[in-house]
Nucleic acid binder design. Sequence first.
DNA 1: AGCCTTTATAAAATCGGTTGACGATAGGGT
DNA 2: ACCCTATCGTCAACCGATTTTATAAAGGCT
Lengths: 353, 353
Amino acid sequence: MGRTEVVTIRDVARECGYSASTVSIVLNGAPLSRYIPGDTKGRIETAAKRLGYRPNPLARSLRSQRSNIVGVMVIDITDPFCTPILRGLENALYDANYLSLITDAHNEPNRFERYLEMLLDRRVEGLVVVANWLVTDIKLLADLTECRVPTVIAGRSFENHSVSTVSVDNENGASMALEHLYRLGHRDIAFLRGPKALSSSGQRWKGIRAFAQSAKLQLDSRKILELPESLDPNSSFEAGARLTGELLRQEKGFTALVAYDDMTALGALRALKKKGLRVPDDCSVIGFDDVAQARLSVPSLTTVRQPMEAMGTLSAGMVLDAIKAMDEKQDVPLVRRKIPAELVVRESTRALK
Amino acid sequence: MGRTEVVTIRDVARECGYSASTVSIVLNGAPLSRYIPGDTKGRIETAAKRLGYRPNPLARSLRSQRSNIVGVMVIDITDPFCTPILRGLENALYDANYLSLITDAHNEPNRFERYLEMLLDRRVEGLVVVANWLVTDIKLLADLTECRVPTVIAGRSFENHSVSTVSVDNENGASMALEHLYRLGHRDIAFLRGPKALSSSGQRWKGIRAFAQSAKLQLDSRKILELPESLDPNSSFEAGARLTGELLRQEKGFTALVAYDDMTALGALRALKKKGLRVPDDCSVIGFDDVAQARLSVPSLTTVRQPMEAMGTLSAGMVLDAIKAMDEKQDVPLVRRKIPAELVVRESTRALK
DNA sequence: AGCCTTTATAAAATCGGTTGACGATAGGGT
DNA sequence: ACCCTATCGTCAACCGATTTTATAAAGGCT
């Protein structure tokens, strides 16, 4: 059977002898279809099936003002942190019969803006921004909230903006990391803090301090270094290696190291190895995120896991809820969801001998 | 200035006192605009700008039968091999003013099929399939070629199907890998071949044999193991570790190991470390692909690089060319592009002492 | 003067659906 | 006999553009 010529609703109407309106009403189960007898419905449906009718989504969206599309803006798709979120997101949207229109801002505000406009042009019904890293421009966020589509930001929290967010509980997660080392007997612990510009850095550090205080653990400020700001998510690997080198040079010993994130931790592993130190025998290392490579390194990395796929799923749910609420003209609540981190113990940490 | 109410072409027409047709003709530089004097054009353009007019792509596509969208089907977006291709792809399409509609088949033929239909429904003008791994169903490929949109497969070659493809020169790449080890003085070399079902396995092995023959190097079949088939791209890590363990148990020594791909090689690193062997001091390891984590491992991995971003760019170019050709009713040539691999020497290989 | 071409713009058809208003018939109630 | 309502559909408008065709005036040519 040829598939070259496109079948329209009028073809179906002609085939079964009803009008296009009736076909539309039946095929969509519109309210009016209540009055249409079953055998009519049957005839229409079989005709549609026989012809292989597939409604043109463009025409449909144009008329009904519903695109069945959720826009997804990824700040940087090559960031290993993003893809699992994307996976969860796409999964949930797919199940809800929404198509996700994925755009990659490439870490560039220009692209972000241009894609944002494209998405709005295409009448996306909702928007999810997958942002781990980029210190997103305030102006862009304003753009977001100004426009009428419900928006969720996945992967970061923005305390002082009125945007719904889904993020991990950084504070508690970092606290867990330190607690893990503490319980293993470590007392001389070095830290590689995240760049100040990232809100997660502050949150994680707060968790560190909270645990230290509760355990009466002294933090030695000479063993605390801070990563420089950067847009490139991979740069923290180099920075982690470099700063770990610095820590090692300054004679103040430490038996464990808490890294801001996994990339930093992997950098640390490299620097330690270079100095001839064995992990975890001579020094334990813990990361944060649980990106894919954490499992693969030698030694595999103990880390605090962000349940990224779940965050994606959750974000999708929130945006879908908001869409539904808008539909029913209820007002859309602002939601800030923090989801718990999980400690994943692997090979890079060990009890102090 | 409010942005809430949507500006249509009729609003612009009203604003500047011309008809919607004229506005459309001018704004698109349609052939008829030849006859429209400059000041009229100016008035129309300023009116459009003043109102912030943005044409509705849905309406436009519906009428003009051009979506300005290229569908991108990723077999598995969590595969680190895919994202760089995606990056190149999206970049090139963006520059050509095409939007890429990215779908993730999740390694599931069902999804593949459903998304494929969605893409065709949405009237994508072209299609790029990013397939590294999945032994794509012949039937699906048939679906592709049957439909009228030009298609390019990026990342794999299909010798005996009439689909355009972009893939790396596996044969030469594998040959380079072996040559590298040979030049470093290695003669006792173990191999972890890829699963037979993947065409790239055969190609790479052909390259291995070709170099071995030209260098009069004997391949010891007891040191050649083959990865099992699997859909999960991460599984080759575990398999690599396991098979390396097997190699090590069988007393036949080797000073270097050629892995099918980077994941396998990373698995090998782990197994070697576990046996107390140092890389590269006791054994050199080389991978294939140059995924992101290759740079990050300790030791960093020497590998044969697939220029993935370039492959993406190239695929985009090919699909755009095909679209243009179709436009002009020329027939679309079938293109199979093989692009050269590059040896990337890092820490995991070293000259035999 | 009559006709053709070029110039400048508008009206109308079209893309492929959805949707609100309306028509026609039949049965029920008063 | 008259109105009302439930049932089963259709008509025509509409979504917001693009594109084809039409119109009208001006200029050029014989």
